[in-house]
Design a protein around this nucleic acid. Structure first.
Lengths: 113, 113
DNA sequence: GCGTTACTTAGGTATATGTCTAAGTATGAC
DNA sequence: GTCATACTTAGACATATACCTAAGTAACGC
């Protein structure tokens, strides 16, 4: 049973922003430098860096600096914790004991329309 | 290819809060009234209702009021959009053309240690 | 070494978020 | 009809978030 995990807060919150999801979609195709990543986003660089910082804090992205260039990469198994949590809930839902009851209840309501 | 979808913002943001994830975990086991849901949370009811409102806005929860009681339920396929987005990224990542290159690069780095 | 590039740090602002208390409203029970 | 129950609405507040500009710093490249 999944207990409360503060890392999931950061992970899902990070995913809740369109800019950050676009960064992840880009990184899914391969590593990139900060300026490469920033280029399509109409945003000042410091603002953009904040997004990268959150992705890294959430464990979704890793980065290393070589010379003056920072290269970012999708973290290995970046999405596993999020996917696992979601799957666990889906499975609980699908395995509910009262599922048949609900099914019947809905059917009855449909007929009354 | 997934374009920018504002519904995913709400969905992932909703998941980024521990109170809301606990609500969803509870609802995965079956429907419940607002007060049943609120009971384990040490929080004023109006504050708690805000969380429910966000879950509903995100399409994760549905609710109907019968008399003075509002019953909440996990939305059908609540987690599908989130799971789909995550899976799409994982697949892109796993299918990268340069994956073998990376593998070799990592191997070389390991040997230098 | 000097200018250019690629970030970084500092500090500011506006809006959103998560919480509260106090005061509704609508139902159900007696 | 009156009282308790189950939310709801309204309004306040503190912190977090998403952005900005301006001014660093630390490599390259000639």
């Amino acid at each position: 049973m999944s207990k409360y995990d503060p890392k999931l807060d950061q992970c899902f919150s990070a995913l809740g922003d369109p800019t950050r999801r676009l960064i992840l979609q880009r990184l899914a195709r391969g590593e990139a430098s900060v300026s490469e990543l920033a280029e399509p986003h109409d945003m000042a660089l410091p603002s953009f860096m904040e997004h990268l910082k959150k992705l890294e804090a959430a464990g979704l992205v890793t980065s290393k600096k070589q010379g003056r260039t920072r290269t970012c990469e999708l973290a290995p198994d970046a999405f596993a914790p999020a996917k696992d949590w979601l799957s666990e809930q889906s499975e609980t839902w699908e395995g509910r004991l009262d599922r048949f009851d609900d099914y019947v209840k809905n059917l009855m309501q449909e007929r009354q329309k």
